[in-house]
Design a protein around this nucleic acid. Structure first.
Length: 111
DNA sequence: AAATTGACACCAA
DNA sequence: ATTGGTGCCAATT
């Protein structure tokens, strides 16, 4: 049995897993969607735990700035950028160029 | 057990 | 506009 905190991580994993192909979202958006108003950091923490999960496209999750802050945490630092580019997301200086176009909001999914 | 850090976000100067 | 400092909660050392 793991800690109950896992429940909270699970919430984040679910949302991240829902991110469609070629789309990205921000930690704050997920936190806001889950009501983790102060959990932007916790979302990133959950991503770190994403190692426990299998299908967590963490590369589709960036900070509110659209910058690939956590690329260093992947299997290989370039993996995040590589994957995003493969999905049609344009990157420049470790930042998403068409962030506004590829940005996907979880709340939008409910609409 | 206490102190520090951390894949962010927001406010103030 | 840019830089710096604070808040959040949990994990790690």
């Amino acid at each position: 049995m793991k800690s109950k905190s896992e429940n909270y991580f699970d919430q984040v994993f679910q949302v991240v897993r829902l991110i469609p192909y070629g789309r990205v979202t921000s930690y704050g958006a997920i936190a806001n969607y889950l009501g983790l108003k102060s959990g932007a950091r916790m979302v990133g923490y959950a991503m770190n735990a994403s190692h426990s999960q299998n299908d967590i496209p963490a590369h589709r999750v960036v900070n509110r700035n659209g910058m690939l802050t956590g690329k260093h945490h992947f299997q290989y630092p370039h993996q995040m950028q590589d994957l995003l580019e493969k999905e049609g997301i344009l990157l420049q200086n470790d930042k998403i160029v068409n962030f506004d176009k590829v940005f996907w909001d979880p709340t939008k999914c409910l609409l």
